[in-house]
Computed example of a mutant assay.
Amino acid sequence: MSSETKHIKQPQSLLSQKYLIISITLSLATMAGVIYWTYTPGVLEHLVPKRLPGLVIAVVVSLLRVWFSAAKIRFLSEKKLDWFASVRVVLAWDFTSAVTPSTIGGAPMATYAMTKEGLKLGDAGAIILYGVLLDQLWFAMAIPILLFAGIFYEVVPAEVGLVGDVSMGLLYVGLLSYAGVLAYGVLRNPAAIKKVVKVVFKLPVLRNLSDKIEVEAENLEQYAHQLRKKPFSFLMKAFFLSTMSWIMRIALPTIVVLSLLPAPEVLSVLRSLAMNLAFLVVPTPGGSGGVEGLFVLFQGPLIAREGFIGLALFLWRIISYYISVGLGIMATTWYVNQKVVEVIQED
């Protein structure tokens, strides 16, 4: 095993059975509550068979999201990762993100996975950093779209009230600020990233981690310098793949809703975009509980028959969450098995 890989947490330590149980329990409990409160006897009689193939389209769109994400990872690795490896990395990343709090996320598992696929730790770190930057650039593009669309559409439901409007406004400001700082640090002044990290970890509550973060801050600056050497066309191609992945994610709730009954398509897509941004700050493992609530809040008022709200929520979570968890478990198990083989070979 390389000296770099030794310093990466092993896959078992990156996951927590507690978080997995909490995530699934919160999701199931919230869905059960919504179905209980919205169910209307005989509602399934109103299903229109010709709309149901839309659920097949929803599954295809969900798989396309994985494909575009894998294509982005493969492109950023400059094709050092093959397609199977790229898909495994994305599935493991998605799974870890789905069962851990947003403050942890799937980046540590993705870094580990890429090193097990043969990349150096520095290359894996650069890909993660660039991937985060691309996501932030997408958010920075999405927010003006939502603000402009808000002139013509009720993007943020009236049900959220003043508190909801203020919260969404603060979220927009936070995402734009983070995107600006990250873009400046990565693309213009890598040394600034290191300085910001060091300042943050001088805070009293984080000071005990300052020694450990010193090395990571140096690595972060080195990764950023690697990214600055890439041509602008490289950024644009990667941004296109990242954008397509997000478009698939945004389209999914609307496709599920339209598979059940008519709804205002444009408004549904805009609200899907807004609620996906709101997902980013839900603190529970995988956002479970919170994302279901946001779906009901944003998409529920667009669903003409109240009895279909719980069904739409259930189908959306099956396709967007539970399938990802199942595939992610298989991918993560593959990496765990690879680790076991390494240990046996070393013995």
Rank of each mutant, 00 (worst) to 15 (best):
T30P: 01
H46W: 09
Q10P: 08
P49Q: 02
I22M: 14
F84P: 09
I22Y: 13
H46F: 12
K9T: 05
K80D: 07
V66I: 13
Y36P: 00
I8D: 05
T40K: 10
K6M: 12
L63D: 00
D82T: 04
V66G: 02
S16F: 11
A71C: 12
V43E: 04
V87Q: 07
K72C: 12
W37M: 07
S13F: 14
F68V: 06
Q17T: 15
P53R: 09
V34M: 01
S77Y: 11
I22E: 11
S77P: 09
M31I: 12
V60D: 03
V87F: 06
S13R: 14
F75Q: 13
I57E: 03
V90M: 10
I24Y: 02
I22L: 13
K18T: 15
G54L: 05
S16M: 12
I57A: 13
R88M: 13
K50F: 08
V87W: 10
I8H: 03
V59E: 04
W67F: 08
V43K: 02
F68A: 05
S69I: 02
L76H: 01
S86K: 11
H7G: 14
F75A: 15
V59A: 06
E4M: 01
W67D: 03
V87I: 15
E4C: 02
V90L: 09
V48K: 01
V34A: 06
A58F: 08
R74G: 10
L14F: 09
H7M: 09
A58D: 02
Y36K: 07
I21Y: 10
V34Y: 02
A58K: 06
T5L: 14
E4L: 02
P49A: 10
T25F: 07
E78W: 01
L63H: 03
L64T: 03
T25Y: 01
K6F: 15
L15V: 13
S3I: 12
Q10M: 14
T25I: 07
R51S: 11
T38Y: 08
S23Q: 11
R51N: 11
R65W: 08
A58R: 06
F75R: 12
A58Q: 07
V89A: 14
F68G: 06
S23N: 06
P41H: 10
V43Q: 04
G54D: 04
Y36H: 05
L20Y: 08
L64D: 05
T25L: 08
R74V: 07
M31G: 02
V56A: 14
I24A: 06
P41C: 09
V61E: 05
G33D: 01
V34T: 05
R65E: 11
S27C: 07
F68N: 04
I57W: 10
